[in-house]
Nucleic acid binder design. Sequence first.
DNA 1: CAGTGGTCTAGACCACGAT
DNA 2: TCGTGGTCTAGACCACTGG
Lengths: 242, 242
Amino acid sequence: MHTDSGLKKMLSANIEIRDYLAGLIKQSRLKQNERLPSERELVEQFKSTRITVRDALSKLESEGLIYRSNRRGWFVSPPRLEYDPSSRVNFYLLAEQQQRTPATELISQKRIKGPQVARTTLAVAADEKLIELVRLRSLDGRPVLYEFIYLPESRFPELMKKDLEGSLTTLMQRDYNVEITHEDNRICVSAVYDQVADALSHINGAPCLEIRRIRYEGERKAVEFDIEHWVHSAIELRIPSH
Amino acid sequence: MHTDSGLKKMLSANIEIRDYLAGLIKQSRLKQNERLPSERELVEQFKSTRITVRDALSKLESEGLIYRSNRRGWFVSPPRLEYDPSSRVNFYLLAEQQQRTPATELISQKRIKGPQVARTTLAVAADEKLIELVRLRSLDGRPVLYEFIYLPESRFPELMKKDLEGSLTTLMQRDYNVEITHEDNRICVSAVYDQVADALSHINGAPCLEIRRIRYEGERKAVEFDIEHWVHSAIELRIPSH
DNA sequence: CAGTGGTCTAGACCACGAT
DNA sequence: TCGTGGTCTAGACCACTGG
C-alpha cells in the first residue's frame, strides 16, 4: 500500500469556485469594489448549490480578497489600509496619505458607568462616570472600523459639547493639554455581533481584527481606553521596531 | 407603522446554540482543551441540523473560544499566548514564561530560488539560492504556528547542517555573528490552505493571523524574511510603544 | 471498525436593499 | 415589488481518527 501523501489532492468544488473567482480578481477582470455575480448565478454557472458557493465566498472573505455588504452582495476588496497603531498619525491623515477618502460618524455619546474592564483600566473612583463614544469610520464610503472609546469624565469636562468626529488626540491635546507619553496595544482576531456587525455590514459572528488600546499621560496614568473592531480585509498593521 | 429598530431581535437558532456553548465555556463547565459534544449530538439536543450547528461552532471559532482538530472534534481554547513581535524573546522562553510547553518540528529545509517576494526583500543576486526552512510550532501539543523562513545562503553557509529547531536568532548570533538592528512586521488576517491548513489541523480557507517579518542587520541589509501563519485563537499580539 | 468532522445536494422561507 | 443574501431543513457520502 502506498499513501496519497505525494499526490495532488482532488479539488473540491468549493475550492474550484474559489480559485475561479480569485483568478478573476487577480487578473483584474473584477475590479476593486465591483460586485461579484450573485450567489444564485454562481450556483448555475458551477452546477452547484448555495452552500458550496457560500463556502467558496467565505474562504475568499477570510483571505481578504472580497467583502460583503449585508444583503447587497459581495464585492472585491480594495488594497488594505496600512496602519501603524503606535504612530500618532490620525485616521484622516492616514487615509489621505493612501489616497483614500475617510469619514467618521459619531454613533453615540454617553455618560455611563461603562464596562468593568474600562473602569479598572482607567482606575476611576467608584462614583465617577465614564464618557463612552461610539464611532463608525469609513473609507471611500465603506464602513471599516467600529470603535468604543472610554474616557474618565473628570479629566475631560465638557467633552460632550465638542466636535467628536475628528481626531481625539488633537482635541485632547488642544483643549485639555493632554500629552500622550506611551500606549499599550493588544491585537487579536475576534468576532463581531449585533450593532457592531450591523454597522460594518457583516453577519453575526464574522471574524474581525480587534485592537484594544490604553493611552497614558505620564508613567502610569491611563486617560483613554479604546476597543476597535476592524473589517479584517480593510487593514494591515505595520509594526516597525527599534 | 413602527419599525423594529428599538426592539430586541429574535434569536436565530445558530446564535442560541452559540450562546449556550459560550455559557458553558465561560462558566468553566467545559474546561480548556476539553472536547465539545459532537456535532450530531448538538443536532439532537437542539432539534436542529448540522448546517446550523456548524454555523454556531464557526462563530465560536472566529471569536477564539474554541478550535478544531481535523476530524477529531472541537475543543475549548486555552488562554491566548501573549506575543510581542518586536521583543527579542524567543518562542521557547515566551511559552515557558506563560506556563506553556513549546515544541518545534522542522518540516523541511531546502536550497531553492524561493518566492519572488523573498528574493526581492533579501536583495539576492540572480543566481544566488535561498535557504527555506519550514517549521511547525506547538503549545501543549497543539499546533499553533506554521512558518516559512527565507535566508540568503551566502550569509549563512553550512546553515543546513545546524540544529534548526531551536531559536534562529540565537544561532545566527552565535555562529554567524549577526546582530539584528531592527525589523519590520506586517500583520493581517489571512487564510490557510493545503499543507499549512493540514498541519494546523484546519480546513482549507480557515482564517489565520499572518505575520510577515523582515529582519535587518545594519540600516538596510535584510538578512531574514519570515511568513508566519498563526492559529488565530492561540495568540494575542501585544505592542507597547514609546 | 465505529464515530468524527468535511463536503455536498436540493430545496425552503425570511429580512432587507434597491428601485 | 423583485432580487439579494441570511438562515434553515433533512438528508447523503466521503476521508480520516482512534480504538
